[in-house]
Amino acid sequence: MSDSKVSIKNLFKIFGGNPKKMVAHVENGMGKQELLEKHRHVLGLNDVNIEIKERHVQVIMGLSGSGKSTLIRHVNRLIEPTEGEILVDGENVLGMADEQLRDFRRFKASMVFQKFALLPHRSVVDNVMYGLNIQKVAKDQARDRAQRWIDAVGLSGFESHYPAQLSGGMQQRVGLARALATDAEILLMDEAFSALDPLIRTDMQNVLLELQDELHKTIIFITHDLDEALRIGDSIVILRDGAVVQQGTPQEIILKPVDDYVSDFIQEINRARVLLVDSVSTSTPKELSCQVESSAKIEEALQILNNAKATEAAVSMNGAITGSVTLEAMIEAVAKPEPSKKEKAYR
């Protein structure tokens, strides 16, 4: 509890003429479809509870229409909730007065958008300075700080370009620099990399991970791409029809999917790249010539075993040998699981 930076509690969002009245129906178990057919209201978020740890990357994922973009907009209250609480450092965002809310957005939480949302009439440096202007930072100081972030995202030399002159990946670098420049502790990223092509996307993920290594911000990252979620998330929440289906670390999601929806989700991913040796190792230490780190990805471990032409390896943690792992066990773990019986029934 105490290490939660952001906690979302019993959050409901219903779109329609009289949303407050509909909360009771949803609490009594009425689903999205039924609510739409019987009462002409759209269920956006259904009793969402998430604890987001400080300095963690929290990924929220789901298919389109699952309510993930709606959810992230509640954190800085770009969308008003129907019911519930969002506590940031113990303070309820939903209870803030206008001026308080503006200060929260100026200093505490900044945002990166799917469609970049840069100011087309301003140059790169002026875009990055936008948040600082709103914070009323003195002009030359703002310019220095903006320059630092432009350098950090690798856009040095493009300061005076206009957004329309940049490629999509570069535009999103500007978006990222703009969000980082405000020094907000919380970074909200709404499908920030979804509009980029795969190579550039991987590139941007690397940029983000490198920066996070230094900055340790609390990041809430929305995506529909499981590979991306597994790659950058310290923990993951899976949303479906506005409700949380499962939350946990990437390992937990892959090893223990709670239902068919989640198992189908993880069907197509490269498990070797996500699962750690730790998850398949036995606890009986063995002295073997081949050694792998328990925190290594199975993909890396497989390569080490293959290079050594070994079928079994000792598992070490912090230099001490803690267990062993067989080639067979690793292959079994990464093999594609059986597809669920009710395949795609919910889609």
Binding site: R106, F107, L119, G131, I134, Q135
Partner: peptide, 22 residues
């Protein structure tokens, strides 16, 4: 563009700042 306006809001712009900056 609504997206740009949303960005201006997300950074805490007041009505006036949004009007004159964006």
């Amino acid at each position: 563009d609504k997206d740009v306006l949303e960005a201006a809001d997300a950074f805490g712009s007041s009505y006036r700042e949004r009007l004159f900056n964006v």
